[in-house]
Structures are given as structure tokens and as C-alpha cells.
Amino acid sequence: MKRLTPALMHLALLTYTVVALFPVFVILINSFKARKAIFREPLALPDADSFSLVGYQTVAMQGDFLLYFQNSMIVTVASLTFILLFGAMAAFALSEYRFRGNTLMGLYLALGIMIPIRIGTVAILEMMVKTGLVNTLWALILVYTAQGLPLAVFILSEFMKGVSDDLKNAGRIDGLSEYAIFFRLVLPLVRPALATVAVFNMIPIWNDLWFPLILAPAEEVKTLTLGSQVFIGQFVTDWNAVLSALSMAILPVMVLYVVFSRQLIRGITSGAVK
């Protein structure tokens, strides 16, 4: 075979697209159907007969999804803020100044790119219990910040090396402090890299189950991922409720994805992770 024809290529890609989207589609359409219709015709779209919101009503009454959503939002936004701010500051120090131990510090911070933070869970839990942070959102924010920093420093310092020295020196001659040079000159210039780092970190933080389960399982600090896991576990035989809860968990990530997908895909394909 010399070359695949365009028609064959579209057929292959279309087939895989169906495989990728089919489960999401099935969950979403069935969440709007009455129990009988879910079982009778699982692949049919909801119509006037089978349409029902009973699952969503159960979810609204039994689970505190608004609170879970709020918790996830706080944890994700706060962690991203710290990752970007602290990461950019450290990246600036490493890429801008020559000092003893610069390379060593860079290597030390890069260690965490390959080693998953989960390995240290036992001691992290012990520390959070000792400091009274267990069952607070702070425990999660600290862990996700620490986990996100290594890659953030690595990507951002690569970008900061590309910021022109002339610009920074002009700022220095104009009497700007080193802090002003960082916040007013460099940070705005590396915005695309900041966005890439944010998008890379956002999804794993939002979706994590391990740390919420171990560090913050209490009702008032549950994240959406843990909240839906527990809810679905309890309502396992109530198919309407399970399907509705799944749909509600899918919704926020899908919105985020639609908003940020170009950024995410550009970030990956620009070779930011190497």
C-alpha cells in the first residue's frame, strides 16, 4: 500500500472519535431519562415520553454538590495561584542571577518532576495531623502547590531565559528594583508560559481522588471528585441518581476544557514538556 486515501483516514479517525466520546454521550443522554427508559432503550435520545429529571432531583436533595463544587474551585484556583507565583519567582531567580549553587538548586527543584508526591503520603498525613491542617482545604492546597512547582519552575525558567537582557538592563538603568523588573517587565512577557503551566496543572488537581480521600474526607471540605465518588457509592442502585451525578461531575471539566482546549493543545504541541 502506497498511501492511505483521505476517505480511509477520515473513517479511521471518525471511528476512534466515536470510541472516545461514546461513554460520555451515553451517560449524558440517559441522565435525562426515566428509569424504565434507561433500561428499555439505553441508546435512544430522551423524548417527551422518557424525559425525566428525577435523578437530578435526588442529587439536589441528597448531595451537597454546590458545596463540593465550591471546595474544588477554591482548591484549584488557590493551588494554581501559588504554583504560578512561587514557580515564576524561583524560575526568575534561577534564570536571571548567577550565584553559588544555582545549578544544584535547579536540579533539586527538578527532582520532583519524576517522583510522584504520593509516595510521601504517610508522612504528609502525619504532618497535617500534627499541624491541625487535616480536613482543611489548606492541606490540599499545600500538597498540590508542592506537586506542581517542579514542572512549573522547569518550564518557566526555560521561557525566562528568552526574555531580552537589554530590556531588563534598561529597567535597571531607569532605577527599577529587581522586584519591579520581575513583576512589571518579565511576568507580562511570559504570560503564554504561565497559561501553559496553569492548564497542565488544573486538570490533575481538579480530578485528584487520592489526597482528598486521605487528607480531607470530611463532609464540609469534600471536593467534587471525592463528593461524587462517595455519592455514587451510596446510590449505586439508583441509576437515575448515579447517571445524573456523573453528568454533573462531567459538566465543569467539559466547560473548562472547551474554554482552555486551544491553550492546552498548543502547550503540549509546542514541546513544553520535554
Binding site: L109, A123, I124, L149
Partner: peptide
Amino acid sequence: FLAPAVLVYTAVMIYP
């Protein structure tokens, strides 16, 4: 510039 990242990373990741 280095302190916040190094402190959080060391305290929450490397030390544990």
C-alpha cells in the same frame, strides 16, 4: 525569589 517555592517544596514534598 527562591524562598517560597523552596520552602513549600521542601516541607510538603521532599521532607515527607
